[in-house]
Design a protein around this nucleic acid. Structure first.
Lengths: 356, 356
DNA sequence: GAAATGCATTGATACGTTTCAGCTCTGTTA
DNA sequence: TAACAGAGCTGAAACGTATCAATGCATTTC
C-alpha cells in the first residue's frame, strides 16, 4: 500500500534508480550515502527524498565487493545455548553495535567438521574477522584463515606462540581464590571436584588450588581430596559426593568445577543428611545467574563474561584497523570470588573426627 | 610457510587466478564450483588442485551480487542472553546448518531504535529472511521489509491479520495446564503471580487459568488471588509472597509467571516459615534447566524452545523457496506440564483453616 | 580582465562472481 | 559424405556499488 509502485515487485531499487529520480549521477548518490558533506544541501535533500520515495536499500554485497569492507563479524563458539558463551556473545554484540557492525554466531558442538564448515562459510562471507573458541586441538585451519587476511581472536583460549590474539581468564587464579578463601576460614582438608585434566581450565584450577594450599603450609598430596568427573553436570556432582564423604578423613569443604556440579553436590550432601555450609562448605564456579537465588545462595567464582566478549570484539576491531602492522595481544582477565552463604568456617576444626 | 606465494600477501586469489593456474576459463572454474557434473573429470581435478594450491576462497559478496542469493538469515530477538531466546536461536541455527546457511543474531534490548537499525543492516546485508520478535508494537517497518521482498517470520508473536508468518506458543493453554493440575490435586484457592496484562503472554495465561477454574466449577473472581509484578524476577517474586499469605483466605498454591519469580516465591515462603509443597504448592513457567536440580525440583510449564526456533527457520526457508506464491502460515506450539516436587495435594482441604 | 582557486558534480572503471549464447571437437546417424 | 548431436569449454555481459580523474562553474586573486 505504501511505497510500492505498480512494478516495484520486480526488483529492489538500485542506486541508479535513485539517481534518475533525483536527476543526478550515481556518483552523487553514492556521495550522499558515504560523504554527505561533499554534496550541496539542496542536492542532498533531493537525493534523500528519492531514497525514501523508492524505499531504496543499498546492497551490502555490491558495496563489499567494490569497497572490500564488510559489516559482519563471525563468532564461532562451542554452544551458543551455554550461558557462558551467551554472555560472551552479548558482550561481543554490544561492542559491535557501537560500530554498526553485525554478529554472525555459530555453534560447533565441539565438532571439528562443523567448525571447519563454519570457518569456510565465514571466510566466503568475507567477514571482518572471526572470534573463535577452537573445537579441535589442531589450529592449522584457523591459522590458514588468518594468513589469508581475516583477523582472528581466540576466545577463552590462550595462544602459546603469540601468533594470534586471545582473550581468556586466569583459571589458576580462580582455583587459588577458592582455596585461599576456604583456608582463610580455617578449612584444613579440602575437596576438589574437578573435570579431566585434559581440559586446560580444569588443570589450571587444580594448579591454583594446590598452589594456595602449599602457600598456607598445607600439603596437597595429603590434604586435598580429588574426585574427577567426566560429565560436568548436576547428576555427576550428586554422585561424586559419595567419594568425598566415604574418605577416611573427609574434607570440610568442596570446590566444584562449575555451578551445576555444585548444585549436584548440595543435593548429594542433602542425601547424606549433611547441611551446607554447617557440615560442608561448597564453592561453585561460573557464578551463573540463578545461584544467587537459591535457598542457600552459592559462593562461586565469577568470570567477567560480558567483558570477555566486549574485549575480544575490541581486540578484533583494533586488529582490523591496524592492518598488517598489527601486533598480536594476549588479554587475561582475573576471576573474582563471590562469597555467599554456602561457605563458612568449618564446624569442628582439625582432626577430631569422632561421632555424629 | 604453506600456500602463500611471495606476493600472495597482496590479495586473496580470485576465480581468475584459479582459471589461469589450471589453464581453463573462469566459466569452467565456476562450473567446477557450482555444477561439477558438467565438467570433465580430469579438468575438474586440475581445477580443484589449483584451488587448494592457491588457497582460493570464493567471494560471497560477488556471488550474492550476481546470483542474488545469500547464505545468511537474520534473527532479531529481545536479548540473546535470555535462555528462552538462546534455545530458540539454537533451534534456528540447527535448521540453518542443515542447509549450509548462517545465522546473524541481533539483540534489541526492546529498543525500537535498535530494532530499526538492525532491520536496516540486515536488509542491506541481503539476508535470505528475518526472524523477529518485535520490540515495538508498530509493525510498519517490519511489513515494509517484507514488502520489499525479504521473507519475515514472527517469533513468539502472532500476527492477527495473517499478513505474515509466525511461530508462537499457546499461552492460554499454559495457564490452563497449570491451573488444571492444581485443581486435579484438590486445590480450591489458587494464587496467580502474573506480569502486567499489557504483555500478551501474561494476559493469555491469566485467561487460561480462569478458564480452567470455571471449567472445574470454581469462581475466579472469588477463588483466584492475583498479584501483579512489574519486574519478572526473583526479588519481585520474593516480595510478592507477602500479598498472598496476608490474604484473608490465602491460596494453597501459587502459579508463577516464570521460574525466576517462582524461585523468589519459594524464598519468600521460606521467609514466612512455610514449606514447599507441604504448606504451599508452587508452579513455575519456562522450565529453565536448573529448576530440575533444585533441592525441591520445580513443577513448571515447558515451552518447546528449540522446536520453536527449528520450526521458524523451516517456515522461513519454505517462504523463500515458495517465492511470491507463498501463503503465510501461523504455527502454534502447545506447552507441556512438567510435574516435579514443588506441587502436591493441599495439606488441609477446604475451609478448615485451623491449627498446624 | 585573466588566471587561479575551490566546490559540486559527472562518468567511466573495477570489484569477483554467475550465466548463457556460442564455439570446437568427437562420435553417430542418415 | 554430410548432417547432426552432444559434451566440454570459452568469452563476454551483468549484478550494484565505490572511487577518482576530469569537468564545469562560480568566486576570488592579482
Amino acid at each position: 500500500m505504501c511505497a510500492a509502485d505498480a512494478d516495484a515487485v520486480k526488483r529492489r531499487a538500485s542506486i541508479k534508480d535513485v539517481a534518475a529520480r533525483a536527476g543526478v549521477s550515481v556518483g552523487t548518490v553514492s556521495n550522499v550515502l558515504n560523504n554527505p558533506e561533499r554534496v550541496a544541501d539542496d542536492t542532498r535533500e533531493r537525493v534523500r527524498e528519492a531514497i525514501v520515495a523508492l524505499g531504496f536499500v543499498r546492497s551490502g554485497a555490491a558495496r563489499q565487493l567494490r569497497a572490500g569492507t564488510s559489516r559482519a563479524v563471525g563468532a564461532v563458539v562451542l554452544d551458543m545455548a551455554n550461558p557462558f558463551f551467551t554472555d560472551v556473545a552479548r558482550g561481543v554484540e554490544d561492542r559491535l553495535a557501537e560500530s554498526d557492525r553485525i554478529l554472525i554466531l555459530c555453534s560447533t558442538d565441539e565438532s571439528p567438521q562443523r567448525e571447519q564448515r563454519y570457518l569456510q562459510l565465514l571466510e566466503e562471507q568475507g567477514v571482518l574477522g572471526i572470534l573463535i573458541t577452537p573445537a579441535s586441538p589442531d589450529m592449522a585451519s584457523i591459522e590458514a584463515v588468518q594468513d589469508r587476511g581475516t583477523a582472528v581472536v581466540l576466545l577463552d583460549r590462550r595462544s602459546k606462540d603469540n601468533e594470534i590474539c586471545s582473550v581468556a581468564v586466569d583459571d589458576v587464579k580462580g582455583g587459588d581464590l577458592a582455596a585461599r578463601h576456604l583456608i582463610d576460614m580455617g578449612h584444613q582438608r579440602i575437596g576438589l571436584l574437578n573435570g579431566p585434566s585434559s581440559i586446560r581450565q580444569c588443570a589450571d584450577r587444580r594448579r591454583g588450588v594446590r598452589r594456595a594450599m602449599r602457600a598456607a603450609g598445607l600439603v596437597p598430596d595429603r590434604d586435598l581430596i580429588e574426585v574427577i568427573i567426566e560429565a560436568l553436570n548436576t547428576d555427576a556432582g550428586d554422585a561424586a559426593v559419595d567419594g568425598f564423604v566415604r574418605d577416611l578423613r573427609p574434607p570440610t569443604a568442596i570446590i566444584c568445577v562449575n555451578d551445576l556440579a555444585a548444585l549436584g553436590v548440595v543435593r548429594g550432601l542433602t542425601r547424606h543428611e549433611m547441611r551446607v555450609p554447617d557440615d560442608m562448605s561448597v564453592i561453585g564456579y561460573d557464578d551463573l545467574d540463578f545461584t544467587a537465588m537459591l535457598a542457600t545462595p552459592l559462593t562461586s567464582i565469577r568470570q567477567p563474561r560480558h567483558q570477555i566478549g566486549y574485549a575480544a570484539a575490541e581486540l578484533l576491531l583494533a586488529a582490523v584497523a591496524d592492518g598488517p602492522t598489527h601486533r598480536h595481544r594476549q588479554v587475561l582477565f582475573q576471576p573474582e570470588l563471590v562469597v555467599r552463604d554456602s561457605s563458612s568456617r568449618p564446624a569442628r576444626s582439625g582432626r577430631r573426627s569422632s561421632s555424629r
